[in-house]
Design a protein around this nucleic acid. Structure first.
Lengths: 164, 164
DNA sequence: CTAGTTAGTCTAAAAACTAGACTGAGTCGA
DNA sequence: TCGACTCAGTCTAGTTTTTAGACTAACTAG
């Protein structure tokens, strides 16, 4: 299957991956959350080839993750900003940051700090069950396909979340 | 910059992206969490080219996200399983699933259901502050670089999380 | 002996990525 | 008015990655 047909799969991860699962895309979005808005600023911070950057920004705009907002005329210039849909990717970037902090940061600690404005602490957000408010991870969530959803059926052996 | 130099950046998202930010990788990991373990099973479910699958699995193994476990001999055959480090990616895949469910699922609802074993509800996990236990999103977390971390300095205008 | 299973590898063509120069439409200072 | 600068891209040519699909190895089952 070609990559650009992945979004037709009946799976939310597949459809999301067709937007996010590309070289550079997650890094571009990370910079968006850090306030970067202009083409050259993305390019300099990421050292991404300009052609690649242009095509990624265009793709993210087409998928309504970013939008172009004019910030001057003559010559017309645009900056890239997160849409609501884009801002809803915050949990994705935040959990990726958590994982990177855990496995790839040096003794001095993580390079980016996140302060929870409400309580003032530097935090690493965690996943929580919205019903019972306990913290959740792979071991206490059981995934299954909804019948008639058109998704691939469950693997016969079943999920492996509860392995030691 | 070439993609395989991204992991040298002083940024947890960059280092994570060098592992996760590739075509197919997120989908492979998603299948791992659904219990898929064998080469042909990945290949059939994802319809990924076999050469690409082989190189992705090798890469994930090198990064200690998956490990190969022998499950038969003569001929020796191996299955791919999540390591602890790999299982720690659950929040990443889970938040991607949430986002896909919100923006890409049809009227009938999301194709994959997740049951919280502890409380029995079908849930979509949310991000929580571990200090004050409130739900967090882009609007109430303020990111900044730690001085002397070697990360890119903050964008002068500052984060945009609190924009309307 | 023949067919089937599983996990890959091989090959050649197509597509994507990369570095770096270049363009266009302006501004700014002298 | 000239030259340098800004910014957001585009162009080009060379390199790398991805892709489809056939093929291989080492068995087992009938």
């Amino acid at each position: 299957m070609k990559w650009d047909e992945v979004n037709k799969q009946q799976c939310s991860v597949a459809r999301s991956s067709s937007v996010l699962g590309d070289r550079w895309t997650l890094l571009i979005l990370s910079d968006c959350f850090l306030g970067v808005r202009n083409f050259d600023q993305f390019q300099e911070r990421l050292e991404i080839p300009r052609t690649t950057l242009a095509s990624r920004l265009q793709k993210l705009e087409q998928h309504d993750v970013l939008y172009r907002k004019q910030y001057q005329s003559s010559p017309d210039r645009f900056e890239y900003r997160l849409t609501d849909k884009g801002r809803d990717l915050y949990p994705v970037l935040s959990t990726i940051l958590n994982w990177g902090d855990k496995y790839y940061s040096d003794e001095a600690g993580p390079p980016i700090l996140r302060r929870h404005v409400s309580c003032g602490h530097d935090i690493q957000p965690v996943l929580q069950c919205p019903e019972c408010e306990k913290t959740v991870d792979a071991h206490n969530v059981h995934a299954r396909t909804r019948p008639q959803s058109g998704a691939h059926p469950d693997v016969s052996r079943g999920p492996i979340q509860r392995r030691a």
